[in-house]
Design a protein around this nucleic acid. Structure first.
Lengths: 147, 147
DNA sequence: TTTTCTGCAAACGATTTGCATACAC
DNA sequence: GTGTATGCAAATCGTTTGCAGAAAA
């Protein structure tokens, strides 16, 4: 249960949209598969690539991240630090969203999973005639070490 | 109850930090007081100023918005449209936060108030030893007109 | 082959900054 | 007066785009 994405999934989703399976795209996805739980920016990914082996243009990194996001493999998110960050999405829709606790002092991002929002979504749908397809919850405060 | 900020509050908070009460800062705050409920960007504010009377440099608008945010008078927020937006904060801490429903099609931002998050915050504090001082909740979906 | 990619460099848009002048205190 | 604010223009930063050559299908 709770299986992860593989390079095979990437290949399949690319083919469905007549996109090509390039080594650059594979390398970039692999970085996320090797580091699930981290929130990497385009610059982060670019630096990791540079350090490990392949030199890939920054523009290609940006284009690939955007594509992986559209394919539903990565999830784009903003933590207010001035750049977009990405993480691998959970394949299993049963495994519910996690929220982010962002420390105002050290900037650390802690994850917290929960399903309490289900009720709230239901409530909103009814009261506002708004069809919710996604949500984003961030809590700001101070982590254990910074309090 | 649920009183709003006034220019007097601005004056007081500025003095506490040895900042000066300038006409620019007053005009900018006034714009928000006249339009509570709107989520204005720096460019929006600049345009409104230009249309109404005073020509204020864009850099000053940015500096003032940042200052008003630090003074706790405005609340800075991101809706993913590429720029920071601001709205007047509620003075009364009893009046609880409102959440934002963001339509993925037309971009409209609807407000929704609720207190359900209280329980969740309590839960997180205990489980993660994380002291929460603020939260941000956004729901993405389709509004009545766009469904 | 045909179409989609990549890499580079230039373009971009939002935001910030340096600096000389102007103003609030 | 003294120190903070302003306005302008230039600088910055993350991100996007145009285009010619490279590579997947």
């Amino acid at each position: 249960m709770s299986a992860n994405f593989t390079l095979g999934d990437l290949k399949q989703r690319l083919q469905e949209r007549q996109h090509k399976l390039t080594p650059q795209r594979q390398h970039i996805l692999q970085i996320f598969l090797d580091r699930s739980g981290e929130h990497l920016s385009a610059e982060d990914v670019h630096a990791i690539l540079r350090n490990s082996h392949s030199e890939i243009g920054l523009a290609t990194v940006y284009r690939s991240l955007e594509l992986l996001n559209e394919l539903g493999i990565l999830q784009k998110m903003e933590f207010g630090d001035g750049c977009s960050r990405y993480e691998v999405k959970q394949m299993d829709p049963e495994t519910h969203q996690h929220h982010h606790l962002i420390c105002l002092k050290c900037g650390k991002v802690i994850e917290f999973s929960d399903d309490l929002l289900e009720d709230l979504e239901q409530d909103i749908s009814e009261k506002c005639s708004f069809k919710i397809v996604d949500h984003q919850v961030k809590f700001f405060g101070y982590c254990k070490e910074c309090q």
